[in-house]
Design a protein around this nucleic acid. Sequence first.
DNA 1: AAGTGAATTTAACGATCGTAAAAAAATCTT
DNA 2: AAGATTTTTTTACGATCGTTAAATTCACTT
Lengths: 226, 226
Amino acid sequence: MKKSNQKSQPPASKNENHYDENSGSLKTSTRVKIVEAASIVFSNFPYYAASIRMIGKEAQIDHPLINYYFPTKAGLFQEVLRVTIEEYYQANVQWFDGLAALGPEKGFSLYIDRFIDFALKHPKPMRIIALNLVQAKQSDIIPGYQLLQQFFLDAMQTFIKAVPVKGTHIDIQMMTTNFNTMAINYLGAGDYYAGILGLEPQNPEYLKWVKESLTYIILPWLKQLL
Amino acid sequence: MKKSNQKSQPPASKNENHYDENSGSLKTSTRVKIVEAASIVFSNFPYYAASIRMIGKEAQIDHPLINYYFPTKAGLFQEVLRVTIEEYYQANVQWFDGLAALGPEKGFSLYIDRFIDFALKHPKPMRIIALNLVQAKQSDIIPGYQLLQQFFLDAMQTFIKAVPVKGTHIDIQMMTTNFNTMAINYLGAGDYYAGILGLEPQNPEYLKWVKESLTYIILPWLKQLL
DNA sequence: AAGTGAATTTAACGATCGTAAAAAAATCTT
DNA sequence: AAGATTTTTTTACGATCGTTAAATTCACTT
């Protein structure tokens, strides 16, 4: 028995692009345009401050069309969060490539360099996480908040798989949580922390400051766990 | 020459309380009630998610009365921020009392204990700071944001005055900034970070986790600077 | 070319927001 | 007690929010 008041269903996750014979180029689907625009807006404003109308403007479409593909703002945000965290996760795995042979000092240094390089080229994931991690009281939490918590657990698992460590689970959890907390704040909210130091977030001096901070804090810990 | 369209001016900062002969007790002024209610709401919701109507409900007054004492939401928030940061600042100074004689290990341990004790008894200041530190893109920033930045500078100055250190300005700035970043996140946004660890924010196990994290991270640094 | 379903635009609803203005009540001054 | 001033309540404005519904346009099949 069908629901009587159902709409025509939009494509949940069809082809992301299709060939446009007129322009002779790949035309991104509306759904993809929406997710991309949403990820821009959600990387500049926390969930409650971002609006569907902002996203529509960013995507250059009329805002109710967003509701056609994503019936609720919460659903759209969750999708953005999912894609964002997945993107970060895949990158994080790669930053560990070939590190084991370098030893802790050089290995950690290269890892941070790769991390910072990613944050500069793809600022959105860290910003979205930083903007929405701390938002409101527990009772009315951001949609998809469990994804943000999962992010920390995933990061720890990635570390454990990539680096052979001796420490206890607690120790490893503490180190990775502290590392990710600092990294999210300093790279995802660089505007604020660089401002405290009187610098610009893309200023190499600030990035050097971030690397030194993370190194001072984490490297001794890491050596102890190896 | 007077402005022709001015309102009657509310008391900017008169007596905070006055004796009520009917009840025979100290009656807190409406202005104080508003600031207290606002600090509760602003410690549960970031600036843009908090509303004047929430604050009116919390203070048990009609919400337009808030506009009588604070013509704009931004002004009220700045006042809350000013009071909040002042309260934290005064407390911070006291946490250093008698620490110099204890040496770095015991001194740092006691400092953290005092800090955590304060955060448990007065959770609002850290929460307000944590909720509003990272909020939106630089262009439309939280009102009174410079107060939040000043908070970090004040904390560093307090440390320098209280503890005789040898390190360079840069080193001290790095250590105190890192310390305050972690403290604000872990104590001001305990709901979120405890959640990642599968704990409750008031759980002693979580507080022990916070103390250990801060100790592992900051103590070696501190020893080096003394 | 006609018909059909999907995609998009237009219009609007109800809710909430900060704030203003006027009315009413309370308090103070003479 | 009467008048003046301050404080509080009531009412409402204009803006923005997420979302819905209907109208319109587009793409495709027959």
